[in-house]
Amino acid sequence: MNSLSKTSKQLIQLHVNGETHDAVVRSADTLLIALREQLGLTGAKRGCENGDCGACSVLINGKPSHSCLSLAVEVIDQPITTIEGLMDSPVSKAFVDNWAIQCGYCTPGFIVNCHSLITTHPDANDELIEEWLQSNICRCTGYEEIREAVHTLLASGQTENE
């Protein structure tokens, strides 16, 4: 305990993907760092650590959030969903089927954000899709295949996964 208190670390619990996990964090550690380094959930990526690229997107209370902009200690009572909690989701499948993946580094953030978009707004129009997805950067695809994936999902009504 002594060494922990010296470096201002504390033991917290994070509720991630339906499970509760212990994590030892500094008060300055972001949720992104805690997920990656304490829980080994490396699907959320460090892209800019400034909220500009969306590669670190996770769901906090069901809402897409940049995990690089939240402190781990801020979210101890809130349910968190990461890409690892969306295995076999319709969005993942739509990204594969529509060729929306190249290098894959932005993919987890996009899938998390799209999942939240289509569950929150199953009837989203182009304007709303654009508003949501402008928070994520993809440098490989040029967005066309991602657009096709989202449109396919919305058209098929495959928006339930929870």
Partner: peptide, 21 residues
Amino acid sequence: EQRIDAVEKSTGKVRYVGDYS
């Protein structure tokens, strides 16, 4: 032919070099 890396990449399970600790 479907890309051989697509399914794995869609799950967030691919480990890039910075993901190892």
